[in-house]
Structures are given as C-alpha cells and as structure tokens.
Design a protein around this nucleic acid. Sequence first.
DNA 1: CGGGGCGTTTGATCTTGCTCAAGGCGGCCC
DNA 2: GGGCCGCCTTGAGCAAGATCAAACGCCCCG
Lengths: 245, 245
Amino acid sequence: MTTTALLHDFCARRGDLAARCRHCGAREFNICQALDPGLQEKLFALALRLQLGKREPVFAAGDPAHYVYNLTEGMVCLSRSLADGRRQILGFLLPGDFIGFEAGETHRCDAETLTEAKACRFERAVFDGFLQDNPETALRLLRMASSELAQAARHEVLLGRKTAVERIASFLLDLRDRSGERHLRTQPLALPMTRSEIADYTGLTIETVSRVLGRLRTDKVIELASTSAVRVIDEAALERMAGPA
Amino acid sequence: MTTTALLHDFCARRGDLAARCRHCGAREFNICQALDPGLQEKLFALALRLQLGKREPVFAAGDPAHYVYNLTEGMVCLSRSLADGRRQILGFLLPGDFIGFEAGETHRCDAETLTEAKACRFERAVFDGFLQDNPETALRLLRMASSELAQAARHEVLLGRKTAVERIASFLLDLRDRSGERHLRTQPLALPMTRSEIADYTGLTIETVSRVLGRLRTDKVIELASTSAVRVIDEAALERMAGPA
DNA sequence: CGGGGCGTTTGATCTTGCTCAAGGCGGCCC
DNA sequence: GGGCCGCCTTGAGCAAGATCAAACGCCCCG
C-alpha cells in the first residue's frame, strides 16, 4: 500500500466502534497515545464506546459530571449561555480532544455534536482511579489541559482584541490547522457549524460573519464550495488578514 | 487567640520566605494542599522560594519554560500581545495560583507581577518527576487546570458577549470573589492594576473603563477610595449590572 | 413538481464604544 | 515646596459592527 492509501485506511478505521485502541484512528492524538499495549487494554476495558448522532447533546451546563469523554470521530461544540440567550461558543472539538473533565461536581458548559460522532466514555470515578494508578497518563492529560488553556488564550485574544475580518480569518486558519493535525481533510475544509455558531464563536453577529465571508470570497481569498465547506485560495492573504502574530 | 486574630496571624505568614509549607499562608489554596507532611517536606526541598518586586517580569512569551511557579503572595498578570502592540490580559493571578506549566518547550504568554510577590519555583523536569511519583498531586494539579479552564470560559463569555458595563461589573465581582476565597481584603478591594490593564483584560479602552467606573461611582454602586481601591456599596446593583447568569 | 421553512445573504440605519483631544490630579524627585 | 511626568478623567465626533428588514436559495416534504 502507498502511504496515502495507508493513511486512508487508517482514517477509515477512525472511531470504529468494535476496534481496540490499537486500531482506533484517533489513537495518535487522544489520551491513549503512548500508552503501552497492556495499559491500552486496561483503559479500553473501562471505556464505553459511544455512537452519537448529528446535533445531539452530550451534556449540558449544570448536569452532574458523571462521565468524561474522549472524542474519536466527529465534531463537538462547547458553549456557555447567559440566561437571556446570549451564547459564547468556547470551541469546536476534533477527534482526540478530551471532554467533560471538571474540578467540581457538575458540567459548566454545554456540549453538543455538530456531526455524527464517536467517543470513548469513562465513569469519572473509574477514570480518576486509572489516573491514580497511571501517573504518566495523568501527566499526559495535564499536558493536554495545558494545550487547551493555550488555545483558550488565543481565543481570548481573538475575542478581546481582533477586528471582524481578523476573527474570521483566524477562525478559518485555526480550524484548518487543527483539522490538518488530526489528518482531516482541509481542502476543502468542512464547516459543519452554522453561521450562527461561527458568530457565537467569534463574538460577532451572523450578518457580520456572512458579510466577511462574502468579502473574502469576492477578494478571491477563499471559495465557498457550499455554505458548509471552504477552500483556501490565497493562503498568504488569509494569514495577513488574520492579524499580526 | 480569637478566630480573627488567628486568621490575621495566618495571613501575616503568607509566603514567609523562611517558612516551611505548613506555615505558608497560601498552603490552603496551592498545589501543596492536602499533601501529607512528608510529601510537603519533599516538595519544599525541590522549591526555590522567590521574592519578586513590584512590576517585575516573571517570564515572557517565547522564553524556554524551565520553571513552574506557585504564587504564594501578591498579584501577577498574564497577558498575550500581538506584534502591533495590541494586548489581551488573560487573568490576574492570586496567591495559590499556579503559573507557567506548559505543554511545549516555551512559555506562550507574558507573566508580570503587579505587586511585590512571592512564589515557589520548581525546575520543570524535577517537578514532572515529583508528579510522576505522586499521582495525587498530579490529579490535584489537573483539577486546578480544569478550574482555570472554567475561568477562561467565563472570560470568553465576558469578552465575546457582554456590554462594557457588564464587563466592568463582572470583572469587579470576579476579582472580589476570588480575593475573598483567598482571604484577601475585599472591602475595600485592591486594584493594583492600571486602567490600561483593566482595559486589556475586559477588551475595552482605558477611556471606556474610566467612564464606566465613573458612572458606577455616580450611581452610588461603588466608591473609589483611591484610583486603586474600590468599595462595593450596592452589591445587588453590581450583580444586576454584571448581566444575567 | 410545488410549497414551506430555515439558514443565509444583502441592504439601510442606528448605537455602542473607539478615537482624538484636552485638562486634571497625584505622586515623586529635586 | 514646586514642578514635572505619568495616569486618569472628561468631552466631542466618528466608525465598526449591531440591529432591523427583506429577499434569496436550498432542502425537505407533501
């Protein structure tokens, strides 16, 4: 098999419900990474493999945090809403991302799938026990948490200090880069979220999101294959538009 | 001694450079919490006690991340800047907060003291080793990281979806609550950061920060003892102004 | 194939918070 | 004690993006 074919095969197995960890397409990115086969088997035994539908809630803010999840396939959206309906989307999660680990007893944001998705679900207490017994896994999770914190910091810069154009360009580049890291298709890049969700991620309105995307298209920086897929035509321009580093 | 006197004594020892962990005023909040005395001694042996001046950089974005820090006294400001000078302040850290843990090799934001401060500094590799050997400490750190992530999420809501008044009111309440949890004085509440730093935390300009604070003062919601200390007069009003939960 | 509904696009107007400008206050140094 | 400098406040006008409004297009369903 060629490298491409191998990669294709690898991706096809991503999140296969019956597959053991060593066949899991998300293994390279998620919590199981670098576990030796024995530990992987142990962790697998603790997991419930979950198949989730498109636009299905995983948990809501305030729910008791009984479980933690490791996403293996699909996209999930994390958000927090104010009582009057204003919503802030915190991030769009990709295969390998860890969801639902809380310091307290309840979840503090909403999690919903944007696409069909698969995940490994662990009982919180059981998972904590595994971490106790496997400090290198705890350290790996700590490093993943630290990456998420860095991602949140970049998002705070976007929300607090960037213009509308910079926000949209940064959003597209960030999603593309993270999708690429996870071996997902980037050209065209899937946008399974609605304009309203892009707006709530970037702190803008749907009208502004639509106008900015329209302008990027007019300027030949991107092509919109459909409303839910972009192709980056002029990468350098898009990077310039995303603002200074 | 009365409870108050005990607390006073306790706070006076906060961060005492010579003190062992069991006398450290920040012990209740920081990484050492709930360690048994033996482990505390082991951790203490790994720490360099650091005395920092007012407005002193701790590290800058891009610096190699050789050390991690546990703040025991004073306030530290975390920020990220764009090349054109725009800055986003990520948070104002209080005693007990953990600083500088990175997934990669370098720091990804700037850290600077706002006041004189004290911290325990650990070499990264040594600290990682301690976590390997003490999974319950790793778990505790993981829970602290999860709290920071929740704090970041609240900040994202503030930056993405709140009005100027809501941002300032939320900022004041958040700082007051976190100061209270750490047994710091809350009435009046110290604001060691400049208007410019409040602006860069809230995603506003200094003029808007000044106007909103002025309006809160005019409306008798707060009193400004000096430019760097507030007293909350009408708590309910301030909470209303911070926006719906 | 035609109709309905939702999500998106596009346009016109308005508002919030930014920019630009000037003045005030306070702390610190000489 | 006086002056200077940095930070803060206040005011006037402006602009980026929000709001309000309407039309479009696509998909689904009858």
